[in-house]
Write a protein that binds this DNA or RNA. Sequence first.
RNA 1: GCCCGGGUGGUGGAAUGGUAGACACGAAGGACUCAAAAUCCUUUGCUCGCAAGGGCGUGCGGGUUCGAAUCCCGCUCCGGGUACCA
Length: 836
Amino acid sequence: MTEVYNVQEVERKWQRIWEESGIYQVDDDDTRPRSYVLCMYPYPSGAAHQGHVKNYTFGDLNVRFRTMKGEAVLSPFGFDSFGLPAENAAIRTKIHPREYTDARIDELRSSVKRLGAVFDWRRESKSHDPSMIKWSQIIFARLYEAGLAYKAEAPVNWCPGCQTVLANEQVNSDGTCDRSGDIVERKNLSQWFFRITSYADDLLEGLDSLDWPERVKTMQRNWIGRSVGAKMKLKVAGLSDYSIEVYTTRPDTSFGMTYAVIAPEHPFVELITSSKIQDEKWKIDNVVSPEFSVSEQNSREIQDFVQSVKNLSDVDRVTTTSERPKRGIFTRCSVMNPFTGKLVPLYIADYVLMTYGTGAIMAVPGEDQRDYDFAKVFDLPIIRTVAPPEGFEGDAYTGSGEKINSEFLNGLSIEEAKSKAISWLQERDLGVASTQYRLRDWLISRQRYWGCPIPIVYCDKCGTSTVPVDDLPVLAPDDVEFLPTGESPLARHAIFSKAVCPKCGGPATRETDTMDTFVDSSWYFLRFCDSFNSKEPFSLTALEEWMPVDQYIGGIEHAILHLMYARFFTRALSDLSLVPKSLKEPFARLFTQGMIRMDGSKMSKSKGNLISPEQYFDGVGADALRLFHLFIGPPGDDFDWTGQADEMIEGCSRFLKRVYRVAVNEYVPTKVQDSESKLLREFTHRIIEKATIDYERWSYNTVVSGAMSLCNQIYKGISNGADSSSVDEAIDILIKLLAPMTPHICAELWSIRHDGEIVHLQKWPTPDQALLSSVKETLVVQVAGKVREKFEVDGSITEQEALALSMGSQKVLSFLANGSASRVVYRLPKLINLIP
RNA sequence: GCCCGGGUGGUGGAAUGGUAGACACGAAGGACUCAAAAUCCUUUGCUCGCAAGGGCGUGCGGGUUCGAAUCCCGCUCCGGGUACCA
């Protein structure tokens, strides 16, 4: 009897059974040990693509494996359903973003189900659901009350082609718009921010405790960019009340300062170019001496320079090469080096950024390459304060060495000189030790419709207030017009923007900006722990039950943004007692899967190089496609989708059919060979051991190869006369080992072989230790490190026995010139190495 | 520029100091078949040899070790991140 495996029918059947039986639904009163496995919730862009297939295959496999190991696994699913594409579609097609998004969600949900991935669907969440909007707004209000949300003016990205404001992540690294390719411009707008910088140190230190890929942790550390140094004040010559504060990480090099630089946006630029500075009365009031000599003419030159810099795109501004040397202009002002009392010239240059440190630097061309480059262009002196090694021929020397030309610092190391210089400054009240971060506050305002409205009203009398909880959620109206004007439809809406002040009851204006969609993804994993709570976003007790996420799975592209924001939220909400005090980190363990590439670039809808999973669901089936994604290599590696992929998927399908045939056909041995039965049993139990280890270390490709070997061994056992109990055992083990990976076929086979039982509720197999220890080992005999002979030996072989066996081989002896070894290295029972 | 990864057969990859190339894909040959598909069997790193067997081989050059794809030093090529952060 050979039954044909009907892929489509069987996969549909089991998908229905899993959904109806609710075996992957978990509740708070579950008595099994708990765990929480989560895939990053997706933006619903329609049917799943290969990246989703890979992601949810890893997630599903973890859920099923842990369940078979006896855990109650929280496995929820949701949709990151706010965002620009739906709004752009609305502008194009006039279909409302909600209608568009709901349709895409249905497509994605359906293809995730066709993959056979199991979730507790009762907990499904969508960012655009009014209840989720309400919780987001409550959380925003709490952050606002705690001073962690504030409004300030800031430059935003504006795409002239799309006529809209863009999120940072939609701007390419070369400063162009991700969609239209236009060069993005800067505009100043009043914006809402989250004060993530006040958690900079916590976020940095928290990384140490996380079981995350080192790569991701390094990226976050660099992004936070903590640096320690000193701030000091440089007096401006001729302006007795004015000084310019600079930040440096190298206070030890202060004696090498030959000029100073301020950013074009520095407030001092405004002062020296304003007309009032030419006013005689102002000069007397502010004690200006003749040393201060900015004339109207210089002032105009300076203004011209600053304007020319502001006209540059961000890309051009950060580019300085040999063809495009450093730009700057002399201010005609001098500042005093506090260490030497000497005056040095003050320049304005755009290689100094207003957004970092104090927006002003002391320039030390001897020990900083950027300062060196600038000094060469403007012919400024260069003084070395660290002795470079003999024969050093570079420009700036940034290495270690002895301090020189630095008076009381001479002879010290850089580190010693740093702390001595800082104490010197502090004793004289001229400067302080200071720590700076590259991390900026998180700009969350979006001038868009399809996002969570910021629940704020502005009153002329009472100022800014949050919308009272009873009035939440603030929902965007449906009767808006989607036009490509760049202005949010909400701002144009006559009624929405009008509000009542919650404090005085008078007329007020409503905030029309919505939140960045990364706000939604910063707490959705908390909601999953308490999806049925209608009173609050989540309760402390539910979070104590399930958080933190034990295994988080997603793409490396979220290494900084989402993963940093979610960490910030968890810490901030912990400090506000909205999540348990002890919960500081949301994701204990993170896995970042590899990318699917095609022709060198990421496979994506926008690149038009999608290979749809649906065609495989319709053909070889979900199991074969899942197996392919698991088998092609280590889960974290990128994969290039070539013409051979289809052949490999076909191979996976062939393997599953091979398993099916051997499992459904009754085996009646003709002549039983006891040695073959023993061999098969030993092999089976070795594979249990290996596969279990490999599952736990995320080496799924080798789990698959182990399962293939076991299948080959079963066929061999059958043709060589293994008894039926050893064959049955091997087949059952094979089905269990494959069950987390290819769930449909395994469920079907187990059900056929075991009278309707559910394989995914079976206990995970454990190897029989007695069988493992009775296994014959291969003893490799090396002569001078080269393999010359092999013997099948007992695991307990002694050194004497191994040596005697080796020396008994003519072949081994022929490589030993005088018939004996001067030294023997034993690694029994695997290896013996004879050195002549 | 700086910071990470990585380089193993025709291809995807295995091997965490101890048999390099597991397991697959592809290819070649064979069995079954009127034929094809499906399935099964054999071969498949390079090279010398009729064979037995030998030599070479994990990007390149050195080192440590009885033994190195694996550890260390220098180089090279490819991929990713980041970009004047003082």
